[in-house]
Simulated scan of single mutants.
Amino acid sequence: MTEYVFDTEHDRYPVAAHLILIDHDGRVLLMRRAGTGYADGLLALPAGHVDLGETPSACAAREAAEELGIGVDRAALTPAGVMFRRSLEPRVDFFFTATDWAGEPEIREPHKCAELVWADPADLPEDALAFVGQAIANARTGRHFDEYGWDATT
């Protein structure tokens, strides 16, 4: 068993993994958040916090299974950028794209998701979280790192 040592003298930021699923028509899958207390009613990507001892790609695959009931091969994930994002709690977000998966996405956690929406990545619905649009744009343009929400321009 791996032992972890935590430095208590420095701030720590949560790490999350987000999945940009792209269908054969080029659309991306968004989930309408519900019941979480954060951004409920808004559209977001399938995502979750990286657990202790877990890698971001393993987290993205796990969340795809838990939230959508689909199988995503970690080896088939394409890194799509990292975002150091200012939020109520600043965080580090890893983004991955996937164009191939097993199964049909469906809501597997109705207490956290009210709707699935396939959207044009160049014309996201107005009620999508702003950082989601930025992350998708970053992935499309090859911007590998972004600091989002730290100044008046983001």
Rank of each mutant, 00 (worst) to 15 (best):
H24F: 01
E54F: 00
L29S: 04
H49I: 03
E89G: 02
F96T: 02
A80P: 07
D93A: 03
V28R: 08
C113Y: 00
A58S: 14
D25P: 00
D120Q: 05
P46N: 12
L129I: 15
P105C: 08
I107T: 06
V117D: 05
G26R: 11
R85H: 02
I22L: 14
V50C: 12
R86L: 11
K112P: 00
G48D: 03
F131P: 00
R33K: 13
G81N: 03
A114D: 14
E54H: 02
L21H: 03
P125L: 02
V117I: 12
L45H: 08
L129V: 15
G71M: 11
A47W: 05
Y38S: 11
M83G: 06
F131V: 11
C59G: 08
G103Y: 05
L45P: 04
D123S: 15
E54C: 06
D51F: 02
F131W: 14
L124V: 07
T97D: 04
P121W: 00
V92A: 01
E54Q: 14
T99C: 07
I22P: 15
A80K: 05
A64E: 10
V117M: 07
H49V: 07
F96W: 14
L88C: 01
G41V: 04
D25K: 13
A98T: 08
V72K: 08
R32D: 04
D127W: 00
A80S: 14
C113A: 05
K112R: 15
E126Y: 01
G35P: 09
A39C: 12
T78P: 00
A102T: 13
R85F: 00
D127H: 12
G35K: 10
A39S: 14
T97L: 06
V82W: 05
P79Q: 07
L116S: 08
A114V: 01
L19K: 12
A102W: 00
R91K: 14
I22A: 13
V72F: 03
A60H: 10
L68W: 05
Y38P: 00
P79G: 08
A44C: 03
R32H: 05
A122Q: 11
D23N: 15
T36N: 04
R62Y: 10
E104T: 15
R108E: 14
L29P: 09
L129S: 02
L77Y: 11
E109F: 01
P105H: 08
G53V: 02
E67L: 14
R74Q: 14
A102D: 15
C59N: 12
M31K: 12
A114I: 01
I70W: 08
A61W: 03
L19R: 13
A39N: 15
D123L: 09
G48V: 02
E63Y: 02
F84S: 07
Y38V: 13
D73C: 03
A39T: 03
P121A: 04
E106P: 00
G41A: 07
L129T: 06
L124Y: 01
F84D: 09
I107F: 07
E109M: 14
F131E: 10
S87D: 15
A34I: 11
P79S: 12
L21I: 04
L68Q: 02
P125F: 02
H24P: 06
E106T: 15
F96R: 02
I20G: 06
V117R: 11
